[in-house]
Amino acid sequence: MRNLIKMDVYRMFHTKSLYIIWIILGAMIVFSTFMTKLDYEALQEPQQETTQEVTGETEASEQINVGMNVELPTKPGEKLTVFDEMYSNIQAKFVALFLVIFAVIYATADLTSGYIKNISGMIPRREYMVFSKAVALGIYTFLSFLYYMLVQTIAVYGFFGYLRWGKVEPMFTYLTVQFVLHYAFLLICMGIAIVLRNNTFSMAISICLTMNFAAILYGLLDKLFAKMGIKDFQTITHTVTGKIALLSMHPARKECLASLLIAVLFGGVATAVTGYVFKTRDI
């Protein structure tokens, strides 16, 4: 298993798409920060004009939008913090979008190239190949978060000319929970890619999940639950993508635990199912 992980990590760092995606992610962070600077400047304009806008944004932040919607939590008159920027980008699944693209490419690369035929017969427990990919993706998620935080910090400093971190403890808690949620989401996307064995389909499904297109399905499920007598049940709040979007800036302990539980449950089940399918399937 250790050698398998070494092999998968080596392959990950020799995958061109990893660096391409990081470069694009970096460029998009810079662009997004520039756009939020414009938003931020608009918020600082005379009170009467901005009041309506702020009210609108407050309403919007309480529901999940289909697509990507980056909204600053900074209130008029307040100084923008790095945490504000990170929160707005992460909850909009800006980071998740780039991570899942790589996860799908990486998870299927050995299948599409045929390299898997060179090794899978020699491995006593084939499901370990899925588990080692999961470990590699964990490293990738961690490094991507570090990279994101670094670029985001530089971009904020570059555009705003100052650095304010915001409250450090909630920021650390928020980023830690989001890291776990993102990792779980990547494991789900990896599972989809390996089970479907089709890059196009897997990529489309993963991006749709990131963009909350599944919210339509969740809405139907909610109605079904309501008909069954389960009132006020919101499926989306029990999903990984829902948790990524809805985790508050200053999450309470209970909220953190619930998010971590969802992440471990979905990520664990996705990896286990993928491992089982991969083990029993012909190559």
Binding site: R11, H14, S113, G114, K117, I119
Partner: peptide
Amino acid sequence: IEAPGLYGNMSAYENIKLKCKL
């Protein structure tokens, strides 16, 4: 088996090194 399964973006050395890691 069938066509050789190789990573196109890697050199021959890297392809072999990958399996050596295993």
